[in-house]
Design a protein around this nucleic acid. Structure first.
Lengths: 346, 346
DNA sequence: CATTTTCAAACAAACGATTGCGCATCAAAT
DNA sequence: ATTTGATGCGCAATCGTTTGTTTGAAAATG
């Protein structure tokens, strides 16, 4: 047990026979403090490992240098990655990150957001819960001038900066890639269409086919829950078709895993007989056999972008602020499940 | 734009012709405030959605009701799950959670810990970086009376509460399970032995064999880096052995994925010809085919336990505190890769 | 009627830092 | 010799709460 007491700026002042203002200024390299006293004070502070009290400083300064992040769940891979990006930019800029989870409950989200007003955070980055359909509970925050950035799942009725992913584009390049691999009859595992992301992805699929002059066949579009088990079952149906697809673009990766599993059982070769491209680039994509081609959403980049935009807004209080929507382009990660050409050439 | 101004306790006092102390007490249901004034003040506060300034309150009270969590990386599944558990207990108890990542850099860890002293957090839950070999940088924190709980990767030279996993037990029950499935020649994929966790797991493996009266064969123990690629290669070697094992207990799941992949290529059936049990219960375990039996470390429980212990220590400042080490028992999750018996009986 | 007890509300001092302003001091310029 | 201008430092207010101590008036007591 060294010293249990916290050492404050006042202690230093007393010990060194000066005043707290001088100590404060010396520690912050104020020009009007002589070099000697500055050194003397800094030396003392270092030796007694003084650290300014965070609460006092932030109370006085009106800023806690803390950004709040609201996510549905912290242990969903996508959000964990986004958080990684946010944290990186935040700590580069000397901001703390306070994370809160809604657990996809609107009630919890409302309470959490309310508790954030006043001092806890200087700004908020949020991805709303699945139950959230309007942004009423964000209004007080916005009115009080707390900068807000929404990402991934966003709201139309709040006029703030947003960072989203171009789902349409992601689907488009996925399908384009399959076409480039020589596929002619490309099917689609579509998610529930009341969710915007799945709607956009389907549209991207359709547009890619159209632009390539390929015929759209409704029988090749399977709208379903995109889980492994369903992928498995649908593949069974596909196998019985008299004119089956030679490729599938799936709106997520889990359905692909199931489909590939069934394909293997049925002796259908992937990608030779049927190629697959998924969406989301889940970690398992490079674990399974064959590895799965997918669309990388760059969650880390998303987090970084959101954090950058928020910090920009927080620090630039002078110039008028106009919310903007940043749309990130996802990218294609080619793996074995769609790589027909190189297999042919080998 | 409603009201941009933050409303404080003073504003309320002014408007209601009373004093700030009365307002403060009224809002906190102090008995010495008459029911009428209390109601009057509460009503006003509610209507103007007053929220106490977090910084001012915590400065005055000496507590920020915030617990810090230090992890190597937030986007590692295990840590994300632990964080989930911590957050759950923390928010039940009205604590905020401030997350910091060391990114497995000791330098970063030291700086982060230093920045936490004084006011930012009232307590810290930490899992050290891979570069950390002593707890010198935690000493100032401890000396200043900031409660600390270490989890998962812990240090011997700091005398604080620790939450760890019983690796030996996990390995033991995994091997026991293989024995129960009728396996007689059980091999082991051992990780690098300079890491405690892998050493304990190997010992658990050895003890389980010994206790079951099974012979230990050095040739069945493969000490290697536990990645998918190495698992794949080792399986190749195993296949060439004249007396190959009928089961493998692996110290992680990735090596199992590789091994199973190779086994399938070689026409070795899993689990009929060779059974597998991994360790860590990675999400992919139920994705791959066959699904992989593994040891669940219960990270969420670990987080909850750590948070509970920390809060207990933070709030119970009166009674003398003695650090304790809590060892969590992992559990076995049986899946296809090790389930010989039921396959036989089907 | 004088004195004590109660109760509700006001006063004021913290918490620990930041910061505008003012007061010295001393050298240089007028 | 006086003004000017740096320079170095101290005073005191301030951020928004919480909380120990007083005050003042009404109620209870003798």
């Amino acid at each position: 047990m060294n010293k249990k007491k916290k050492i404050t700026i006042q202690d230093i002042a007393r010990e060194l026979n000066t005043t707290i203002s001088t100590v404060s200024r010396a520690l912050r390299d104020h020009p009007r403090i002589s070099v000697e006293t500055r050194e003397r004070i800094k030396k003392y502070a270092l030796e007694h490992d003084y650290q300014p009290d965070f609460r006092a400083a932030s109370l006085r300064q009106g800023s806690a240098r803390t950004i709040g992040v609201l996510v549905p769940r912290i242990d969903i891979h996508f959000f964990a990655r986004v958080l990684r990006g946010i944290d990186e930019v935040a700590s580069e800029n000397n901001y703390n990150v306070l994370i809160i989870q809604s657990l996809d409950s609107l009630t919890k989200e409302i309470n959490l957001v309310k508790s954030l007003v006043y001092g806890k955070v200087d700004g908020l980055i949020a991805s709303i819960s699945i139950e959230t359909h309007d942004g009423e509970h964000f209004k007080p925050l916005i009115n009080k001038g707390v900068p807000l950035v929404l990402f991934d799942k966003v709201l139309d009725d709040v006029d703030v900066t947003k960072v989203i992913i171009d789902d349409h584009y992601g689907a488009y390049i996925a399908v384009q890639h399959l076409i480039n691999q020589g596929c002619k009859r490309i099917g689609h595992f579509a998610g529930p269409q009341y969710l915007n992301i799945y709607k956009s992805r389907k549209q991207g699929y359709l547009d890619a086919l159209k632009d390539a002059g390929l015929k759209i066949e409704e029988s090749l579009i399977f709208e379903d829950m995109l889980v492994k088990e369903r992928g498995y079952e649908i593949m069974g149906q596909v196998h019985k078709m008299e004119n089956p697809p030679d490729a599938i673009f799936s709106s997520n990766d889990f359905a692909v895993v199931g489909a590939i599993m069934r394909a293997k059982e049925l002796g259908i070769r992937v990608p030779q007989d049927i190629a697959f491209t998924g969406f989301a680039n889940e970690p398992m994509d490079e674990i399974v056999d064959p590895t799965i081609s997918s669309i990388e959403q760059n969650p880390v980049k998303m987090g970084k972008e959101a954090a950058r935009l928020l910090i920009e807004q927080m620090e630039d209080k002078k110039t008028a602020f106009y919310p903007k929507t940043v749309t990130l382009k996802p990218s294609l990660v080619v793996r074995q499940s769609s790589l027909k050409k190189s297999i042919v050439s080998v």
